[in-house]
Amino acid sequence: MTSSVTIIATGSANTASVIAAFDRLSVSTRTAKTPTDVRNADRVVLPGVGAFGPAMRRIDEQGMRDALVERITDDRPTLAICLGLQLLADGSEESPGTAGLGVVDGTVTRLPEDLVVPHLGWNEVTPVSDDGLLAPGWAYFANSYRLPSIPEGWSGAWTDYGSGFVSALERGNVLACQFHPELSGEWGARLLARWLECTGRAS
């Protein structure tokens, strides 16, 4: 298992829980300072809480957009969490006019108004396939927006809240979770461990 993961700072994101979760798996973490760090890292985590627009601006200010797109396109081990999943899409209703990373076809939309929002708490994750990293189980969510469909070329998982939404995406060594694996107990820790064990071309 790899000994270190590199975390992208997306501004408001609170990364203490992510760092603690990797710490419990005996994996050290560091923060990416330059686009080169993003390109060279064996494993990258794109976390994120807060809003789509400010997070993308922070990525652009650090010049990391292209490095992130490249490593995801090249199937280098990358984990996106919560807002991180949404940043992979073309854009979001939360911040119209702000371009996402665009590695996932689709636009992120707000959860229906008639529901309690944010979607906050534990909900069931149902993978579409049983030969990837994702396993069925309960995960902790805190989201007001969601990706409505799994784009072509990706596998993933569904979760039901009013209607179904995309709770995870995966393709090779790239895993994106709308939920927080670092806050999803033993189930989440096992998912992080499986992602760490996946061998990318980089390592």
Binding site: A16, S17, A20, A21, D23, R24, Y140, A142, H180, E182, L183, S184, G185, E186, G188, A189
Partner: peptide, 9 residues
């Protein structure tokens, strides 16, 4: 607490 807890705090 965070160091040992893997659920929200």
């Amino acid at each position: 607490v965070r160091s040992v807890l893997s659920i929200p705090l």
